[in-house]
């Protein structure tokens, strides 16, 4: 479980998050929604580790990770995806996945010179693992292509596969539908659903309400840095305060 307790983030005089608490439980998908400027991205950054909250705590699996940078959270099993389809452009699709091996071994200069046999054996094993993932999203046929050649939607899937190589228990998704062709959103939704069935938990910031409705078991609605409503998607969208936050006062 990933938990934020009484999170407050201030940028100078501006309060982006105001004493907000969320619980992203295991075995399900938790959605974070809200209009622009509600504080979703800040909350995401705090949970992922790229922003340290002014006050409050972040707990992952019961452990306090508030001041741990993303690199250490990843090692605990907390993965993340990126909003814009960012990729390691100079690497092939397959290499993108091999950067994210679950164990950090044989990755130094010494190993490069003197443990080539071990590297080869391990690499063969990792290629098999990568192949399994890439076949699920129909990217294996592009394995040797530079990842820069992929479409926006394919890069999102690649991003997700790369994180999955780490075998994380929890993945934070930053707008998985942003910049993706509508027909491909269904594909990404299906893939995430199958991963939940495999036992991975998700938290996601998302604007596409169709995707939130299809995936999220629990939804938190934010407005102006505060929590407005929480519950199932239906309950949250039926809430008057949420409608008001989206449509303005008096709606």
């Amino acid at each position: 479980m990933l938990e934020g307790r009484n999170l407050t983030v201030r940028y100078g005089g501006f309060t982006a998050l105001n004493d907000l608490s969320v619980q992203l439980r295991s075995g399900m998908v938790t959605g974070l929604i809200g209009p622009n400027g509600a504080g979703k991205s800040t909350l995401f950054s705090v949970l992922a580790g790229s922003v340290v909250p002014t006050t409050g705590q972040v707990l992952f699996g019961g452990e306090d990770v508030t001041s741990r940078p993303p690199v250490l959270r990843a090692r605990l099993g907390l993965g993340r995806s990126f909003q814009l389809s960012r990729d390691l452009a100079g690497l092939t699709v397959l290499e993108n996945l091999l950067v994210a091996q679950p164990q950090r071994v044989l990755e130094g200069i010494g190993a490069a010179l003197f443990r080539r046999r071990a590297i080869k054996a391990r690499q063969a094993h990792m290629i098999e693992k990568a192949r399994g993932l890439l076949l699920r999203v129909d990217l294996w046929r592009l394995a040797d292509q530079p990842s820069a050649a992929l479409s926006g939607g394919q890069k999102k899937l690649l991003d997700l596969c790369r994180v999955l190589m780490l075998e994380p228990s929890f993945i934070l998704l930053d707008e998985p539908s942003a910049g993706v062709n509508p027909t491909r959103i269904g594909e990404i939704t299906e893939f995430i659903r199958s991963l939940v069935a495999d036992g991975v938990s998700f938290g996601m910031v998302e604007h596409n309400m169709g995707m939130v409705a299809a995936l999220c078991d629990q939804v938190y609605a934010l407005a102006e840095g505060k929590l407005v409503a929480e519950g199932t998607f239906q309950a949250v969208t039926a809430n008057d305060d949420v409608a008001r936050a989206y449509l303005g006062v008096g709606a």
Partner: peptide, 24 residues
């Protein structure tokens, strides 16, 4: 040609991604 070389090139292309994958 080694995993280290791959990590170097990955860091050149996007250090944030490399960090988010647990690599320093």
């Amino acid at each position: 040609a080694s995993p280290f070389g791959r990590l170097m090139r990955a860091t050149r292309d996007d250090p944030d991604i490399v960090g988010s994958l647990g690599r320093s």
